[in-house]
Write a protein that binds this DNA or RNA. Structure first.
Lengths: 251, 251
DNA sequence: CGTTTTTTTGAGCAGGATCAAGCAGCGTGG
DNA sequence: CCACGCTGCTTGATCCTGCTCAAAAAAACG
């Protein structure tokens, strides 16, 4: 039994055995042989909060990376210092944009982040071989596009309170995708207030005020500054697209 | 000579011969044989302003389509009627999102639009055969993602005047991609004021006011309500990321 | 503990929304 | 041909949400 197991395991690189990216991530499309080949060039790494993971344009670091744990924020910034977070990435997303032309976006660790990185060239080679992997990549890109567009609606048309509610729903849905609307959900915010502000197109002051606003309306509880509990996801969802202030005739 | 030409043309479907999508669009990846096969199921159509081209989710219309001319707007809307344009598509973009899961976006003709449509199944079959076509599609998706993220910065962090300047730049760059910064550029706006407002997260009144604002600052001229002339694209670009009101120390 | 960073709270201001007219272009029908 | 209604655009007056500026409280860190 042990023997058989050894043989089985020998087909799969040790580094990949417990990796989430092998199931839901892009690596899931690879054969055992391909995984071995890829793993030869693989390095795992850990990065602290606010570490820059990829520079814009230049792409000096010639690597892609799977996110093993933690949250990565993608930010754009203007010459005068204003900045906007344009996307968040969670495990097991792939960071580094294969085939992207010029994405002037900076990727930073929002929390502590563990990465599994490998050279561009190796991954691109595998993409040639495996249409399935290319498809997974395309799907991730489409999912990111869909999220970005949802966020356009949020930034363009929602009030501050609705924005914050939308943000909390986004985080909750990523940290616990299958969570039922009914049950209480509790989690740690992966972003600090100023990051949330940069994500919502607000100031930290407004984020703080709206946080107490939602708390007073009974939509959430603050156990710690960072740890929140949401008693009713459905109610929060309603709050994310309905502003009591401008509550007109819409039922 | 005529004979030779006939043979040559017979390799390529007549409907495709003058089509822009064959060069810059996804069809450019197809062989003559594939073009013939695709063209068998192809129908060209014309749609007037504000016609809905695709319903959300349902995707009842089981077709994709290349845009031959005109501008298509992609809008999201909220239960209470607020709406946001989350993307614009120009020739020779492909509309209909192959492989997209659930994109609750409505595609409407912003101007008169000419389409070249074909059944989903045929295109998806071709995608299997032609990795090059799949790659082109992926690149279009990445380009749309990049645009969406640029727009997140615009919606989240720019003033009304900067937003309008950004919009005009976007239109100009799509209608005349290679236009030099120095030369005067003149074009017809493909969107009416209320559409521009929905694209910028503003009201029509504010769009109108900012239009006169930019005009008074000499950044544009209004020949007709719809036809504008921009004397200096560079100046407009500067105005798109620098607000004179909050002009601080940033040189 | 002192120092720095993060978060909250308060007072006043302003950019853009809202509400309300007025105007210009345009197709329709008398 | 012009009165009429319709839609799209502009302009004005007023209001309110979220920003700015300022300061203090609460954590985080060495």
């Amino acid at each position: 039994m042990a023997g058989r197991k050894d043989i089985h395991n020998s087909e799969m690189p040790i580094v990949c055995q417990a990796c989430e990216a092998r199931h839901k991530g892009v690596c899931g499309a690879l054969s055992a042989e391909q995984l071995v080949r890829l793993s030869k060039h693989t390095t795992k790494s850990m990065h602290g909060r606010d570490v820059v993971l990829t520079e814009p344009v230049s792409e000096t670091a010639d690597t892609y990376a799977n996110i093993l744990s933690g949250v990565v924020k993608l930010t754009k910034l203007m010459p005068d210092g204003r900045q906007q977070i344009v996307g968040l990435q969670f495990a097991p997303d792939l960071t580094g944009r294969p085939m992207a032309a010029n994405d002037d976006v900076v990727a930073e660790a929002a929390t502590n982040v563990r990465l599994c990185s490998f050279p561009k060239s190796v991954l691109e080679e595998m993409l040639q071989e495996s249409p399935d992997m290319a498809l997974r990549l395309h799907r991730q890109t489409l999912a990111e596009l869909e999220e970005a567009r949802t966020w356009l609606l949020t930034l363009g048309r929602k009030s501050a309170a609705e924005k914050l509610a939308s943000f909390l729903l986004l985080i909750a849905s990523h940290l616990d995708p299958e969570h039922p609307d009914g049950a209480v959900i509790e989690f740690e915010l992966p972003l600090k207030r100023s990051d949330i502000a940069d994500f919502l197109g607000l100031t930290t002051e407004t984020v703080s005020r709206q946080m107490t606003n939602l708390r007073k309306r009974g939509l959430l509880e603050l156990l710690d500054r960072r740890i929140i509990s949401i008693p009713d996801l459905g109610a929060l969802r309603r709050a994310s697209e309905h502003d009591p202030a401008r509550a007109s005739n819409s039922l």
